[in-house]
Design a protein around this nucleic acid. Structure first.
Length: 422
RNA sequence: GGAUGGUUGGCCGAGAGGUCUAAGGCAGUUGACUUGAAAUCAACCGUACCGCAAGGUACCGCAGGUUCGAAUCCUGCACCAUCCGCCA
């Protein structure tokens, strides 16, 4: 959510920002509704002032004078009911519109419609070269008993999978290395709920517009697609000690995604699944743009470093306007080389939001001047499994069908090659 | 699933239909005292909206209702605590 004052004073910038994100929103309508809101408020406030004044007169009066005053009040009250009804309607539309106003993308965000228009800002390593024909991860992992997709689909349906044997070992090894690497950055590990109430999704900006992407329980909770939701909800409705900023969480959770808009995409393997696990970096910091920018780069760099530990070729892109979510000001994606597809595939997303989320979540702190402020929020993937396994097994496969374990993972896997004859 | 008790400002906590500006304490800010600090004393000190301002309005978990008037009474819901039942 943006500040209504900011929207009113910078309507053109807000409109341009929405256009850049390809998000439709009627700012003129919002301002008109806000005018109505102000007017009705003023009228109603005046009537309430009158009511309060007369109420104390009644208190002091007695006898027939009191009866008369009470009767007069009843008339006044009747006149107020209509105003209150109108204000309620106006407020409902006002709130609905406010929730749909996107945050303004940064100047440095490139124009574009979709992820095809994202711009590479960094490239690390070269696409892996093989002196044999490389296999894709489905073939490799199935052959090595690391995953079972047929039975996954039998048991769980479309996009179902089992990890098995060394597949589980490898996934666990990634989690453990991630815990070590990211904790060392002073991020506090946090195991978070995935089953989360609606207001937390509204607060993080996934709702109201993302309803169809979420699984919902018969009790009304939603299954989160990222630990960001619960980690951000952690301080909802609280006033933070400014000394505690920046708050730096390393959240871990199962993640559930309906992938409602992606029915035909990535139907094979571990790239796009309905449930997976993810370590996620979540940060709250002082309400200063420079601080957001600094931490954004830092979060993204943390993940780049982790990929470098695994020694997998990657590049980093800055997402174009059309590929930004409602609340995001700017986003980097890290994409890993996937030999089976001869392309880079997203493994990580690092975004900052300014106070868009904290305003919705009502998270505040008192600054040095004693004023209440909404802190800035940021988040970035640390590492997801099993998607990361795709790039590991495909880049590290050997001619004989075995998979070399990345050096950094060897201590956690307990061997240096998967599939070698014992 | 059943029962009971709760939810009040940054925090704790009183308040039980009308002294209107929600007692009091803690924390915080400023000042006095002090070489400095602590202690003590004094003053100030909630958030949001509207308004150029004076000022006004709203907010006591949320939403309704009763009333001339609701933190206070009624209804529904959410959450917290404890107990019982069930159960990894």
């Amino acid at each position: 959510m943006l500040d209504i004052h900011l929207i009113r004073e910078n309507a053109d910038i807000v409109k341009a920002g929405a256009a850049k994100k390809h998000i439709e929103v009627d700012i003129d309508r919002l301002i008109k509704v806000d005018d109505e809101r102000k007017l009705l408020r003023q009228e109603l406030d005046a009537k309430r002032a009158e009511q309060n004044r007369r109420s104390s007169e009644i208190q002091r009066a007695s006898g027939s004078e009191r009866e008369k005053l009470i009767e007069a009040m009843q008339h006044l009250k009747a006149g107020m009911a209509e105003g209150e009804e109108r204000l309620k309607k106006v407020m409902a539309e006002w709130q609905q519109l406010m929730l749909t106003v996107p945050n303004i993308p940064d100047m440095s965000v490139p124009d574009g419609d979709s992820d095809a228009d994202n711009v590479e800002v960094k490239k690390w390593g070269e696409p892996t070269v093989f002196d044999f024909t490389p296999k894709d991860h489905v073939e490799l992992m199935t052959a090595l008993g690391m995953a079972d997709f047929e039975r996954g689909a039998k048991v769980a349906g479309f996009r179902g999978y089992f990890l098995k044997g060394d597949g589980v070992l490898l996934a666990n090894a990634v989690w453990q290395l991630a815990l070590k690497h990211f904790s060392a950055k002073q991020l506090v590990p946090l195991s978070v709920p995935s089953l989360v109430r609606r207001e937390t999704f509204l607060g993080t900006g996934y709702l109201p517009q993302g309803e169809e992407d979420l699984y919902k329980t018969q009790d009304g909770e939603y299954l989160a697609g990222t630990a960001e939701v619960a980690a951000m909800g952690y301080y909802m409705d609280e006033v933070l000690d400014p000394q505690a900023l920046p708050v730096q969480f390393l959240g871990f959770s199962p993640c559930f995604r309906r992938e409602a808009g992606a029915h035909g995409k990535d139907v094979r393997g571990l790239i796009r699944v309905h449930e997976f696990f993810k370590w996620e970096q979540v940060v709250l910091c002082r309400a200063e743009h420079d601080e957001s920018v600094r931490l954004h780069d830092w979060l993204n760099r943390n993940t780049e470093e982790f990929i470098e530990l695994l020694n997998i070729p990657y590049h980093t892109v800055v997402n174009c306007g059309g590929d930004l979510g409602l609340g995001q000001v700017k986003k980097y994606d890290i994409e890993l080389w996937v030999p089976g597809e001869k392309t880079y595939r997203e493994i990580s997303s690092a975004s900052y939001f300014h106070d868009f989320q904290t305003r919705r979540l009502n998270i505040r702190y008192r600054d040095a001047e004693g004023n209440m402020r909404f802190p800035h929020s940021l988040n970035s993937t640390a590492i997801p499994t099993p998607r990361i396994l795709v790039s590991i097994v495909e880049n590290y496969q050997q001619a004989d069908g075995t998979i070399k374990v990345p050096d950094a993972l060897v201590p956690y896997v307990g061997k240096s090659v998967i599939g070698a004859a014992a």
